[in-house]
Amino acid sequence: MAIKRVGSQTVKLENPPAIISSHSIVGPKEGEGPLKAYFDLILEEDLWGTESWEKAESKIQEECIKGAINEAGLSTKDIDYLIAGDLLNQIIASGYSARQLGIPYFGLYGACSTMTESLSLGAMLMDGGFADKIVCATSSHFSTAERQFRFPLEYGNQRKMTAQWTVTGAGATLISPSGPGPYIKCITTGKIIDPGIKDAANMGAAMAPAAMDTLINHFKDTGRDPSYYDLIISGDLGYVGKDIVIDMMKKEGYDLSKNYTDCGVEIFDRSLQDTHAGGSGCGCSGSVFNGYIIKEMKKGKFNKVLLMSTGALHSTLITQQGESIPGIAHAVVIENKREG
């Protein structure tokens, strides 16, 4: 019997894993944004000495994972599992970073929901007693995402006002059965919700219903309401998605107006950085969580955080065939107190 399950989609971890280190690397544009003080490394140029954007993204992820391992005073040999994913076809940024690291590796594809997908699975593996050290990581790169999903960089097109800006960056979280925390307490795994949006330049609207579904089920499963948390933060719904979530959740009876925001809203300054509807990409919640959120949790600004990365599980191929964009959102609860 699944004794750790609560309600329909949530698990409560019996021995909440401790986050013993975290690392974030971002590109130059993110390094000029409002959260610049929180990132461990800001790149001066986004090729980072490599020959291609893909190789650069892989290097960013690899160095980010190494950064988290070093910060904990460990070496790659001490790590039992690496759980990582990214946006590229065949998740090559992760596969090639894992090739260099030599850690037993699970590759994930959850699009931009990867950060909480990897944290969810990592925490469950650990609570199950299968590992002592796990790294959960993800990355994205503006230039690899542009060429895969949109247009060549030098092509002179106009971006839509609802379009979001893929974050160049990576985040890695190292978890262990014990440590000073914060701790991963609770996980709500999302279902795919497809509201029928076909415009790939309006991801916030495509993913918002999935985010709401996960939130509502989380609150129902745990019996909590939004005020339980100091911070509820979604991955990359951007300004459009955030606005939709606040409005529609209010109709469902949940007030998110006080403590809810979105990583894609926080990472860029929309008026100065011309990022339209905000940031997106796996690296958006990856770097904001491992940079901003964890650091502020350690300082005590936030004690109870619900992080919910959001993903759009489409490809250019299937949208050209007329399909709509399926959304997903996975929630992870991180708290400074282990008990309760």
Partner: peptide, 17 residues
């Protein structure tokens, strides 16, 4: 979720060029 209504609602929420 009513897809047609949601499409209308999200269009309203989306900034116009």
């Amino acid at each position: 979720l009513n897809k047609k209504e949601y499409q209308k609602f999200s269009d309203k929420k989306s900034p116009k060029p």
